[in-house]
Design a protein around this nucleic acid. Structure first.
Lengths: 189, 189
DNA sequence: AGGCCCATGTAATCTGTTACATGATTCC
DNA sequence: GGAATCATGTAACAGATTACATGGGCCT
């Protein structure tokens, strides 16, 4: 039941609509959790029913109306309690790693192509995260912002996302290079 | 349907029983995928039914009998095909990140404690992965092993696992330090 | 005219987790 | 004597993904 808490955490600083939340939880941005729009709309309905968030309708003329949600006191308390319970460690679950595990038994060309593609994707996220970090800290240095900034939670999670994608990029490039070199060696044997 | 392929990839090099697989996919070891024993037994049954693996009974007197599974030609072909399809990027999904996202609104002491605990856990995995890597490459250097070793797939995925846990450890320590310093600052204000 | 963005959902299916069940052997 | 390890599952439930549905406005 952690999506529940992820949504609460996302709504802490700002009122958001389901649609805006969906963008924040999308693969392109999600720096601390990932979920699809359908899950989010369902979760928002449940959270509202349970009184942990409240929604207010915002009428728009040029676009469809939307509902903005904010966390209630009960929601805050729920998050507080969640934080107090032990977290189980997260683990990797990645299609690409499965393919690399089988690297010695499958088509190397395909694998190298996919590693290159993933490295590019990771690079894109790295640049996005760097922009986000810069926006959050404004003109301060990171050091100063982390000491004196008002809201550092999102900054810290974004730092983790950044390091994760740097890890992905570096590992993809290294693995692709290794596989390429072995291809060349085999030909030369 | 990637658990299916993760199991096939794990069985590529060696015959394993459900129990042995379960240990390999456990949180403590899993370097490229994670799954519980129940999932694995179910998946093995399905894979065997579909002819992608075959099992053979091994009778033991001092321990319960076990079934060892190996990948069939059809299983290999399935993996090959899986490798050819595009992989969707993996994303982070971690309770601890959710808590840090809410760092500015929840009990800081609790959070610091959990970050410290996670850092210790990560350190344990780092040491485990380092031992595993050393075992796999034997007396060769990493460079030499990756160029000329026979089976490098598991080595590469283990490298990713290692980097991931180093990232976890470093981030946990950094975040805990930041939160601790802010606590101190607040008291001193 | 075609495609993307805003905005919200329902329904069916697939995957993953939690709880439960059994029973012998080895280690402390 | 009690805990951990070996060894294999079933059943119920929770969570996530895929497919489908709707409809106006904006951009090229």
């Amino acid at each position: 039941m952690a999506l529940r808490h992820a949504v609460l955490a996302a709504l802490l600083g700002e009122e958001l609509s389901g649609y805006q939340l969906a963008k924040a939880f999308d693969v392109g941005v999600a720096n601390f959790w990932h979920a699809l729009p359908q899950q989010l709309y369902a979760e928002l309905a449940r959270l509202e029913k349970d009184g942990l968030i409240t929604g207010r309708e915002v009428v728009q003329d040029t676009r469809p109306n939307k509902r903005l949600f904010q966390v209630t006191d009960a929601g805050s308390a729920e998050l507080e309690q969640f934080t107090a319970t032990a977290a189980k460690p997260s683990s990797i679950r990645d299609d690409l790693l499965v393919k690399v595990q089988a690297a010695d038994h499958v088509d190397t060309g395909q694998l190298i192509a996919q590693l290159a593609e993933r490295a590019t994707f990771a690079q894109g996220k790295i640049e996005l995260f760097e922009r986000l970090l810069h926006t959050m800290r404004g003109d301060s240095t990171e050091e100063h912002f982390l000491r004196h900034g008002e809201r550092i939670g999102p900054y810290l999670t974004c730092l983790r996302g950044l390091a994760f994608e740097q890890g992905n990029r570096d590992w993809c490039e290294r693995s692709a290079a290794v596989l390429r070199e072995r291809q060349a060696t085999r030909v030369g044997d």
